[in-house]
Design a protein around this nucleic acid. Structure first.
Lengths: 192, 192
DNA sequence: CGTATTTTGGAGCGAGCGCACGGAAACTCG
DNA sequence: CGAGTTTCCGTGCGCTCGCTCCAAAATACG
């Protein structure tokens, strides 16, 4: 009934997400987005709305892919501590392997835009809450099996791990010594 | 021998620091800096060089004031765990009391600009290293007094606390529940 | 095949960006 | 008090920003 699109929306969204992730919101121009997605300006605006809306879409796309990948690591079978260690070691290796050192998009968004944009803040909160809940479930499972002490509540421990985990991802931006980062992971896991 | 300045350089630098801290590098325009410092554009450029140099000056000024304040909290007398708790509780209360929710300038800089600017990265590294070293000294003191187990090295524990501490400051941008944040602090301190 | 509908690419809009410049102003010192 | 020096303020340059618009292109349908 009309001229068909010659691009795949998900591919374009993924490209835009990577650009925002790597460069941040303010440092990314609509020309940058046009280049990385391969779409013309008019196609970008026609498909995704303005720059801010595309950023929100990108953040939600990150949730569905990368945040989901993180919780998937926790949901796998096996000892709870192994699952927690996997999550953190995976983050360390991902961050160190990235030549652009983009870190975690959620954290980046939380630092750059969550203060000034309510919708970004709510989206970031959703990411944080999802990871925290997955951590709490994993820890509760470890407590039921006796692997983890029940002295502190699963909720408190989950928030503690979440905090260490996010701190780790901030540190990994500067500290490239893998052994030092893995030392943090081991120390954290073994303290449970 | 010439016309004297009618502004105080440190005051201007403090104002510029607060603006960069609150808004980030990219979102801050030279007009914003002119407004917040009260200096005209030419005075700004004459005194501090260009925008990037002023940002670096602002980051160094943060080191001399706020990073120094953090390590000062650790250097005070008293039980090591109390010092560590003070540091983190102070950060929580500072972050929650700030209506702008600016967080920690060092972390903000590390997320927004450390990847793309070598000098920013080195400056951020200096902040991280200073806090880590102060943490290690405090922990070593606690280990000598028997207050903290010597099972893990002071260096490893310092990095673990650093990680949790920075994660806490990221979480505090979204999570405004003081009790939840203090729960993380207590759980972290008591696990030592 | 003609018409309606949507997408595409590119030119370009007003605004704001970082930064530079030049003359007036405010001091010190001979 | 005049000469020399530095700071101050306003203007504006060249550029890029986010975004819009329009005609050409590509399909579906009668």
């Amino acid at each position: 009934m009309a001229r068909p699109r010659k691009f795949d929306e998900t591919h374009a969204l993924t490209a835009a997400m990577e650009t925002f992730w790597r460069r941040g919101y303010e440092a990314t121009s609509t020309r940058n987005l046009s280049d990385s997605t391969g779409l013309g300006q008019s196609s970008l605006y026609n498909t995704f709305g303005d720059k801010r809306e595309l950023y929100l879409r990108a953040l939600r796309h990150y949730y569905e892919t990368h945040t989901a990948e993180q919780t998937a690591l926790l949901d796998r079978p096996g000892p709870a501590k192994d699952r927690l260690r996997d999550l953190m070691v995976h983050a360390v290796d991902t961050d160190l392997a990235d030549p652009e050192a983009s870190g975690c998009f959620t954290i980046n968004a939380s630092v750059e835009k969550a203060d000034s944009d309510d919708e970004v803040r709510e989206e970031v909160r959703r990411h944080f809450t999802t990871v925290e809940r997955a951590l709490a479930e994993t820890i509760a499972r470890g407590q039921r099996s006796g692997e983890i002490s029940s002295e502190r509540s699963a909720g408190t421990l989950a928030r503690q791990i979440l905090s260490t985990y996010y701190g780790l991802r901030v540190l990994a931006r500067i500290q490239k010594d893998r052994d030092a980062l893995l030392g943090i992971v081991e120390s954290t896991v073994s303290a449970l």
